[in-house]
Amino acid sequence: MEIKEKLLSNGWKKFTFSNNKGITISVLDYGGIITEINVPDHKGTIENVVLSYKDYDSYINDPNYFGALIGRVAGRVEGASFSLNGKEYTLDANDGDNSLHGGKQGFNKKIWEASPFQSSTDAGVVFTCESPHLEGGYPGSVSIKVTYQLNDQNQFIVDYQAISDQDTPITLTNHSYFNLSGNAKRPICDHKMKIASDRFVELDEHLIPTGNINSNQDTPFDLRNETTLKSPLGSDHSQIQLAGNGYDHYFIFKETGEEQVTLRDEDSGRVLKVHTTQPGMVLYTGNGLGDEFQLASGPAEKHSGLCLETQASPASLHHDGFPSALLKAAEPYNKRTTFTFDTF
């Protein structure tokens, strides 16, 4: 196990840590951004399986949130407002009339305190920050700790911890775009995917939850059996169409002790398995990507990558029956998502 630290010309720090199996991960203290996850294919060729920009400056005002830590609340909050304990809170409206991914100055724009670590069995970085009362409009002063850890089982473990002095909404995630072809050689349309979910959240034309939780049965959202993404991404289903010919939807996980998500690329032989303590996940298939975004691998294109945003549901702030994003005062927030890389 090894970790290296580099000071970039713009003052940010980059941390690169690796295991003994050929996996190397690079992250920034700016936004906790993951810029590279380099993993071997079935022939041993090591390539980056997350999308990253050609230039670091592109991360400063990134509408795609490439690789970033997201908070306080991942996803869209309807009307950039919510009521809690009889009080109305107004949030940053940075997505039309709604608040997206924590608002104008979300956790993706923070310089995090970073403490690298390594041992004989793991290596990584602990990121910490303080979010003051009413930052982004959210109540409570919150202490945040996020740990990125890589081990020799080819597991990349992300631990999220927080504690607040007031009741407040919080659901943290990471917004990496995965593409197992390596260096984004091909769009993710030929990837095969399996999700342990039988329900998804219906969206309106502004990508805001309607309040309906729908069955996946007999829809393109039924990914309980391994499915090549090309078919559902080309569907004429109204929910696929309104999201820009793809997914931007919250899947509620079934109770299971197995991995909730499996992603596989036939050509490279790479496999990604995701296990999380979160109740669900937003699957976003890069529907808004285009060649105006210059990746390290070249111009982006639609469906260049997909996000696996494990989290609670911001719809719970306005509708009953959704996985709650509410954190009680002085109650610890502890969530873990594990990404396991393999080949076949």
Results as ranks from 00 to 15, higher is better:
H133K: 08
D165Y: 00
P187T: 13
S119M: 10
F117S: 12
F156K: 11
D190L: 11
Y160I: 04
F82A: 05
I163L: 10
Y160G: 11
S176L: 07
T121V: 12
N151K: 06
D122E: 15
G140E: 05
D152L: 13
N108K: 01
P132T: 09
H175D: 08
E135I: 03
Q166S: 10
F178T: 03
D167K: 06
Q149K: 15
Y160H: 11
S141T: 14
H191W: 05
K87I: 07
N183V: 04
G137W: 00
G137D: 01
N85F: 03
L150R: 12
F178V: 04
I163C: 13
K192M: 07
R186T: 15
S115A: 14
D95H: 14
S81H: 10
Y89F: 15
D190R: 07
F178C: 07
I144L: 14
S81F: 06
N179Y: 02
Q155V: 04
S181E: 05
P116V: 09
D190T: 06
D190Q: 13
G140Q: 10
G124W: 01
L84F: 07
I144E: 07
V142G: 01
R186K: 15
Y89E: 02
S176E: 06
S120F: 08
S83L: 09
P139G: 11
Q105E: 06
N183C: 03
K185P: 00
R186M: 08
Q166V: 01
E113T: 12
W112D: 12
F156I: 04
A162D: 05
D122I: 02
Q105C: 04
Y160P: 11
H101V: 02
D167S: 09
S141W: 05
I170S: 07
K109S: 12
D159P: 00
Y177S: 00
W112K: 08
V158T: 13
E88Y: 09
N154A: 12
S164V: 08
S81K: 14
S181G: 11
F178A: 08
I157H: 04
S81A: 09
N174I: 00
T128I: 01
S115E: 15
Y177G: 00
L91N: 01
Q118T: 14
I170T: 06
S99D: 01
A93V: 04
V77I: 15
Q155H: 07
P116S: 12
G79P: 12
Q118R: 13
K145T: 11
S119W: 14
Y160C: 10
G124Q: 02
S181F: 03
T171C: 11
E113S: 15
T168W: 08
S83I: 10
D159V: 04
